[in-house]
Write a protein that binds this DNA or RNA. Structure first.
Lengths: 244, 244
DNA sequence: CGGGGACTTGATACTGTTCAATTTCCGTGG
DNA sequence: CCACGGAAATTGAACAGTATCAAGTCCCCG
């Protein structure tokens, strides 16, 4: 949030959180912001384990995560489940449901969380009036596509160590963006959830983390991680592109 | 295309092709269609092997495939490549680039093809005026997200036979939608490209296809496939959800 | 302090990869 | 039209990586 702008209700309610995601501060006037305020309802609280939405239910709103941590997963008929993503404060969730007006995955809180609801019809209406908001919405949708492609690359062509290195670096990056340490953080999800996300079994996750620790790249104790050698983790993944 | 509507230039130029994707015939008036016409430029022809666009180049337009067949792939620095999708007539391509104004993958023609260019700025402008077009654009973007999640499920939790069964059924479905046989079609891509898409090596693709043939589910000779037992292929993937 | 879930670690089995040899297909030029 | 050559595809055998099964430990919550 920029210092100079006035504190509209939205800015206050969600200060420093999903403004990053949803708004283009440079292009939206205070009056525009006020309009955004109006369509974003009060925030809701969820406890660890609560469903934000379920696959198959009707779509009405996107959700901006104000605080907390979620996972999204698709359930395969035979019981197999695939975690499709982990979402943290400042991120928008629910975009998969636009195509069919029905949620195609479950969203579950991994810790106590607060979200703001954004009725999609109203968001569309407002974005017809505000080109910069429209553009930003398109960017957010497209970013999700790019993110998914990164995961496809990971799942399709990386080995266990590479996948975990990519995963840890991605978490690091996202924590850093939110002002937390990029080298020391707390994983909210279980080994099984990590494994589901990365396409491997929980035992392999555990083994591989121990391996990375043995190589001196990380230190992991339970859900607390410390990254000791980011460059070598990067090298494991394959240098530049910050995919995933 | 519906019989009753008049033949605007767009409808003629792209008859029966990407109207399915880009337009909502029921809600767009002829006058609306005329406006769409104006922003869609002449179609371009590409030969097998040509790039429609390259990763890293500037984004300006989406492309509607009128005829032909494309693949999209992301290149990993170390040379690894991952095919992220195969696109055929009637599908929209290039949506990954919206987020950063830069293409994030290569799009390459797998056979001689024609595409219509859709300047994205103009599409955004028009969709501000036509809510049904706006909604449809959002659906298309979201559908891409859902598609990617299906592939994540495939890559993350299926075995070779299941992946190939899912792949073949998906192709079948898409050919059928375009009026071709759902049980007998021609694959445009190589075993290596299939493998890259499905996260396996070309030898494994070949072996697994031979296996499915041995089980009497398909008949494959080179790039010509016949599906002999769709129900059992479905059962392999896991019953209902037509993912991928 | 007890209990159950999460996690770690080991031994073994299996799926898919790698390397290699051959065959088939297809476009090109004679 | 046929012959040639290179790419694509098939198949086999050995190997590597991950899954599976199992045992035991750790941690957190009540």
């Amino acid at each position: 949030m920029q210092k100079s702008v006035s504190l509209t209700p939205l800015r206050v309610a969600c200060s420093g959180c999903y403004l990053r995601e949803l708004c283009l501060p440079r292009k939206l006037t205070d009056s525009d912001m006020a309009q955004l305020d109006n369509l974003i309802s009060l925030k809701h609280a969820y406890q660890r384990g609560d469903f934000l939405y379920r696959s198959g239910t009707r779509f009405q709103s996107l959700y901006a995560i104000r605080t907390g941590f979620f996972k999204t997963q698709v359930l395969h008929v035979d019981g197999r489940e695939q975690v499709t993503g982990f979402q943290m404060a400042g991120e928008i969730i629910g975009m998969d449901a636009i195509s069919s007006d029905t949620h195609t995955c479950d969203a579950i809180a991994l810790e106590d969380s607060e979200v703001c609801e954004i009725p999609f019809n109203q968001l569309e209406e407002l974005s017809r009036k505000l080109p910069s908001l429209q553009r930003h919405l398109h960017r957010i949708l497209s970013r999700e596509i790019v993110r998914d492609q990164g995961i496809m690359l990971l799942l399709g062509s990386m080995r266990a160590e590479e996948r975990l290195a990519a995963f840890l670096l991605n978490m690091s990056l996202r924590f850093a963006k939110r002002g937390y340490s990029p080298t020391s953080f707390h994983l909210r999800m279980t080994r099984q959830e990590i494994g589901s996300y990365l396409g491997m079994k929980l035992e392999t996750v555990s083994r591989t983390l121990s391996l990375l620790q043995g190589m001196g790249l990380i230190n992991i104790r339970n859900k607390s991680v410390e990254l000791h050698n980011m460059p070598r983790l990067q090298a494991l993944v394959g240098p530049p592109p910050q995919l995933l």
